[in-house]
């Protein structure tokens, strides 16, 4: 599904290297968790995979379903099934959430050769998905992420993921800012999408999320590299010991 080989990425502006030879292999249907200290490069990895401007890839490769991911435009990656739930979802004042969601959905459907959903059909779909995530339907009438609470923003990200039907989703700290009930609801939302084809990369600081979304693999990302990989037990260990062991590695 996704094959990252020796990826080096630096900030375009100042040439600072953030990813320093990252290698990661994700198969269809797998859930991988990435943990690691602040500033290690976790969000940078998500951004680079999604194709955000402002980074220079100096070495390495990323193949997604057999194609060179790095050669695609941002929206082409999205059309190919890549989804990024943002650590900090972006506010777009004046643009109604519902309109935003419909535009995203129909643009993506068009690119995938699917028929456009009518206003009515879309509204039904969006309401149903929102209800599953216990999102207040009034939120759909508000501007995109404007004035949303931290938790509301994260739920809205999961709603978008559900509507866009991705093949590979990066969840960047989607659990941060969620209350206990919301965490369970969001995890259920993610679990509902799990099947033997869809893969997830879950970035988190808390083992707790992984109680709900059971990962197949857990990785530690420190100083721009995967420094250790293991099963779910690795998350427990990190929870206890923190990242002291890896600071040396960094």
């Amino acid at each position: 599904m996704l094959s990252i080989q020796n990826l080096h990425a630096q900030i375009e502006e100042d040439g600072k290297e953030i990813l320093k030879g990252l290698t990661l292999e994700i198969n269809p249907g797998e859930v991988h968790a990435i943990m690691g200290p602040n500033g290690a490069g976790k969000s940078t990895l998500g951004n680079v995979l999604a194709g955000k401007d402002g980074y220079v890839i100096t070495e390495g490769s990323v193949f997604y379903k057999g194609q060179d991911l790095l050669a695609l435009e941002v929206e082409e990656r999205a059309h190919a099934g890549l989804f990024l739930a943002f650590q900090y979802p972006v506010e777009i004042p004046g643009v109604q959430m519902l309109n935003f969601l419909r535009t995203c959905t129909n643009e993506t459907r068009a690119a995938r050769g699917l028929p456009e959903l009518s206003g009515m059909d879309f509204l039904k779909l969006a309401r149903a998905k929102a209800a599953e995530l216990k999102i207040n339907p009034d939120m759909l009438k508000r501007s995109v992420n404007s004035g949303f609470s931290g938790g509301e923003k994260k739920r809205a990200e999961v709603l978008q993921m559900a509507l866009l039907d991705p093949q590979f989703a990066v969840l960047d700290e989607t659990d941060s800012g969620l209350d206990i009930d919301a965490l369970r609801i969001v995890a259920e939302g993610v679990n509902a999408l799990r099947d033997d084809k869809r893969s997830f990369l879950v970035i988190t600081h808390y083992q707790r999320l992984l109680d709900y979304i059971k990962p197949d693999h857990v990785h530690v990302l420190a100083d721009g590299k995967i420094v250790r990989s293991g099963g779910p037990e690795l998350a427990m260990e990190l929870e206890e010991r923190g990242y002291v062991d890896y600071e040396k590695a960094a």
């Binding site: 990024l84 972006v90 777009i92 995203c104 643009e107 690119a111 866009l164």
Partner: peptide, 16 residues
């Protein structure tokens, strides 16, 4: 740039 990136990540092209 963040707004544009956000929209594009959701499947819109730049002009859209």
């Amino acid at each position: 740039d963040d707004q544009l990136f956000y929209c594009r990540q959701r499947g819109m092209n730049e002009e859209k």
